[in-house]
Write a protein that binds this DNA or RNA. Structure first.
Length: 583
RNA sequence: GUGCCCGUAGUUCAGCCCGGAUAGAACGUUGGCCUCCGGAGCCAAAGGUCACAGGUUCAAAUCCUGUCGGGCACGCCA
């Protein structure tokens, strides 16, 4: 509808140009907006005001000319000038009747767009290191990423969802070593656990499994383990040196056994994460392994590409990437003095790999604390000769948990963070998904557990779901009366009261909302829309009875609310919230 | 210190990309509505220097500059 109107205005615009009222070279984008006030009709256009300067005439005068040149359309009832020069469009009511038909015909496809039909996009999100369970910060990334993926899919993209598994590198070695040390403790060995080790209870669980399956296979005496190991921080040493030495000792003593401890750790935690996300309604097309990159020499290949392009140099034994050539504030290390590649190097390789897989667009979703990392990754894309605009990095702010007024302290360091699983268990999947998504992603989020759990109108999730369930209930009532309804026998012209008009208008707004949300990567717009739609429905419900005796009216109303139910379901589907028939 | 993000009713937030009509919701507060398809609902009222100061414009919450407040990031960590 919006597009239809746009075409009408473009036509009028051209006419005015031909008549010489406005200069030929005047370039203006025509915007149509939904009006806030029904008195202003359905759509408003400010084109006349935009042109006032070009034409050196009053906006109202130009508006008058534009309206005269506006082609007639069966959808438009009237166009009038209002305020400082707006052209308000009033749609013919038939235009809205076709909305119901479209919804009932297209069902779950209502709102789908063909906009980006041949575009493919790879969206990577969460990608938390498999060193422990997901926490509530990851939860927001998961909810946002999954919703964005759905959104882009109905905008017409071919969407590939991917989780990058950091299963190589030092952190993983620390994990394996932590498990081994806990295992030794279970064997009765006296252990001083390193400050830098992973201290969560889940490490004990994995160690217990290791002990159960392998007995004392990996056992060594305290003296052997700690011999010549530099002291840890509390003993006046350096915690990094200490833990690195322990890793080396672990590898040395376990030999081939090291890889099985390592694998047990990664696999256990990864499987836990996978299940956690699945129960959160988030599933991936691919779990992309960093180890795979290393094994396939992709990191080496990426570094060579940079070297050949002349963007690297050696200094103090390390290999550097000259990222400052590309608006990064300083150069970055790719290969450390000790020969180990940095996280950044494998990240470059990963992005190169993504680019080479041929996606039109790459979207990375990161926690906002990584924003300082953006320039160097963009720099690497440019250095590799790719168009940096193929990559979009969306930053997601962390969430702060509240229980009513009380702010919940959260410390990742001590391992006392609230996990995503705990959050789900407390408030449920639906509330969690909705609360995560209802704010702009780059906005800090206050997540109130009490509110999310409350089953009252305070809670927008229940408000929306209740609208859906109420409609289901009405349809059940109809069934109990041994009646049925058909769209064919519905007289949509009977839908004349203000509540029905409002509802029709909101329903018609859905495709535009989806399109806009997809364009700006903003699924929160869907949440807001659904709230509006549910509200329009509840108001209608309270004001009118649907199951009336007049058959054509009854069918019309049931067509309308069935359409509402469909759109609620579609919208909730995008943000990953269920649409229950019974609450 | 440098860079990025944020500052809109008592509270939590839309709106800012693309400047336009009286700045919208929700919660909370106050007062109403169940012989009625689910009251997990509805109606009404009160509540705003859009952080502040300049600038651009016929027109600024929206664009530009500065200031002040809050958050985050600034490793041969990941």
């Amino acid at each position: 509808m919006k597009q239809h109107l746009q075409t009408l205005f473009e036509h009028a615009f051209d006419q005015l140009k031909q008549q010489g009222i406005i200069p030929q070279d005047a370039q203006v984008t025509i915007y149509l907006e939904r009006t806030k006030d029904p008195k202003h009709g359905d759509f408003a256009c400010n084109l006349a005001m935009m042109l006032a300067k070009h034409a050196k005439r009053k906006p109202t005068e130009i508006a008058q000319q534009l309206i005269q040149c506006l082609p007639t359309s069966i959808h438009v009832a009237k166009a009038e000038i209002a305020g400082p020069g707006f052209i308000n469009i009033f749609l013919a009511s038939e235009a809205y009747h076709s909305v119901i038909e479209s919804i009932l015909r297209e069902k779950e496809n209502y709102g789908k767009s063909q906009m980006e039909q041949n575009q493919s996009v790879l969206i990577e999100f969460v990608s938390a290191n498999p060193t422990g369970p997901l926490h509530i910060g990851h939860g927001r990334g998961a909810a946002y990423g999954a919703a964005l993926a759905n959104l882009l899919q109905i905008a017409g993209y071919r969407v590939h969802k991917e989780y990058y598994v950091n299963d190589a590198g030092r952190q993983m070695d620390i994990l394996a070593t932590s498990i081994w040390l806990r295992y030794l403790d279970l064997c009765g060995v006296e252990i001083t656990f390193p400050v830098n080790g992973y201290k969560g209870d889940y490490i004990w669980d994995i160690a217990a499994t290791l002990h159960r399956d392998n007995g004392n296979t990996f056992f060594h005496e305290t003296e052997t383990i700690f011999q010549d190991i530099p002291s840890d921080e509390p003993q006046g040493g350096d915690k990094e040196t200490h833990v690195d030495a322990l890793i080396a000792r672990c590898k040395q003593l376990l030999g081939d056994g090291y890889s099985s401890v390592f694998a047990l750790g990664v696999n256990t935690i990864l499987e836990d994460i996978r299940q956690d996300l699945e129960q959160f309604g988030v599933v991936y097309d691919e779990w992309f392994s960093e180890q795979g990159l290393v094994e396939h020499q992709t990191v080496q290949y990426a570094i060579e590409q940079l070297q050949q392009a002349g963007y690297t140099y050696t200094q103090e034994g390390a290999l550097w990437f000259r990222s400052s050539d590309f608006e990064d504030e300083k150069d970055r290390v790719l290969v450390r003095e000790n020969g180990q590649i940095t996280y950044f190097a494998s990240d470059i390789a990963y992005h190169l790999n993504k680019l080479e897989r041929g996606f039109d667009k790459l979207i990375d979703i990161w926690g906002a604390d990584h924003h300082g990392y953006v320039p160097r990754v963009k720099a690497s894309i440019k250095a590799l000769g790719a168009d940096e605009n193929r990559l979009t990095i969306q930053l997601v702010q962390f969430a702060t948990l509240y229980r009513g007024k009380e702010k919940l302290a959260m410390s990742t360091r001590s391992g006392e963070f609230v996990t995503l699983r705990e959050l789900r268990q407390e408030v449920g999947k639906d509330a969690a998904r909705f609360f995560y998504i209802q704010r702009k992603s780059e906005q800090h989020l206050d997540f109130d557990l009490e509110l999310a759990k409350s089953q009252t109108s305070d809670n927008p999730v229940y408000y929306i779901q209740y609208a859906h369930a109420r409609i289901a209930s009405v349809l059940r009532q109809l069934e109990e009366k041994q009646q049925a309804w058909t769209f064919d026998n519905a007289d949509l012209k009977t839908l004349t009261n203000e509540h029905e008009q409002a509802l029709l208008k909101t329903l018609a707004r859905y495709p535009e909302t989806v399109e806009s949300a997809a364009q700006s990567y903003a699924p929160h717009q869907i949440a807001h829309y659904l709230r509006d739609l549910a509200q329009d429905f509840h108001v209608y419900y309270n004001a009118h009875t649907f199951l009336v005796d007049d058959e054509s009216l009854r069918n019309a109303r049931l067509s309308l609310i069935t359409a509402v139910q469909q759109v609620l379901r579609n919208g909730l589907g995008i943000i990953g919230v269920s649409a229950p028939d019974v609450m």
